[in-house]
Design a protein around this nucleic acid. Sequence first.
DNA 1: GCGCTGACTTCAGCATACGCAAGTCAGATC
DNA 2: GATCTGACTTGCGTATGCTGAAGTCAGCGC
Lengths: 159, 159
Amino acid sequence: MEDLRDDRDSWTSENCSVARAMDIVGSRSTVLIMREALLGTRRFDDFVRRVGVGEPAMAARLKEMVAAELLERIPYREPGQRTRHEYQLTRKGRELLPVITALRNWGDTWTAADTGPSIVATHHDCGEPIRAVLRCAAGHEIADGDIDIIAGPGLVRRD
Amino acid sequence: MEDLRDDRDSWTSENCSVARAMDIVGSRSTVLIMREALLGTRRFDDFVRRVGVGEPAMAARLKEMVAAELLERIPYREPGQRTRHEYQLTRKGRELLPVITALRNWGDTWTAADTGPSIVATHHDCGEPIRAVLRCAAGHEIADGDIDIIAGPGLVRRD
DNA sequence: GCGCTGACTTCAGCATACGCAAGTCAGATC
DNA sequence: GATCTGACTTGCGTATGCTGAAGTCAGCGC
């Protein structure tokens, strides 16, 4: 099987999933909102306070994220309160957890404060810390050089 | 063990590894340059052509990334050519692979073109496709609700 | 029907990111 | 010493992201 890296100029980066993903979650505040949402935050002013971004920016970001279907705007009502709206993660949003986790792992390793990480995600069943790792569909763990890059159905070749 | 999500307002998001990571790799073009670097690209004009960003932006980005120690600027010389410089991944840069992979997985699933993904990373030994997954240090695979969030040494509490 | 509150919106103003076009610069080839 | 080329830099103009301060709006409690 030919490895695409051997002839990098025979194909283009049109139709790149990384680029399309970055068009959606490419800004700093969007990622930090996802971090908070994955920690359970749902309300506008909690997002504002915990992410540390201003109200206008937050309103704009949340609107984008609802449009991108990362979040859903859902009415709720507490007893004796009027109807309000909260922002719940969709499945599409929840599935960004490996991205955020990988980012947190990397940040913990390479940009750590001298005090160490502030929070640790652990496995509920055994208490061991959780990391994002590479694994193949057969269950093997992937070491650094063990990867081939092959053509998918959407590859755009150049000739 | 107390789960920090139960009392989200008792601690702050200062010292957040995700935020610090985003300060370094938070822009679209930085991520796309990392994608190319992980595919083996090393030279200035190859980056310009393959990432699809202009020369001024590329020069600025590469300079930042060298300063952030994601890339190293290394002199090389081809026979009959003058000395030039290429950009090689450092270990710090190479360890962003799980982040990029998680992002590509997510993009393939949720933003796919109708044609399907353009490239697939496979395990060299068995040929199966590779994904970024969550795993705990004891080797268990992590399902969606199986995560606790506990305090790390660097947590900043609010009182 | 008035105040309160959470959830926004509106309005400057600034900083960064990017594009395009053109210019520079160093050194190997001729 | 003129030419060529890869690797940038300079100089614009535009778009996006953010901040801070102030204003709006929809009800529930009184």
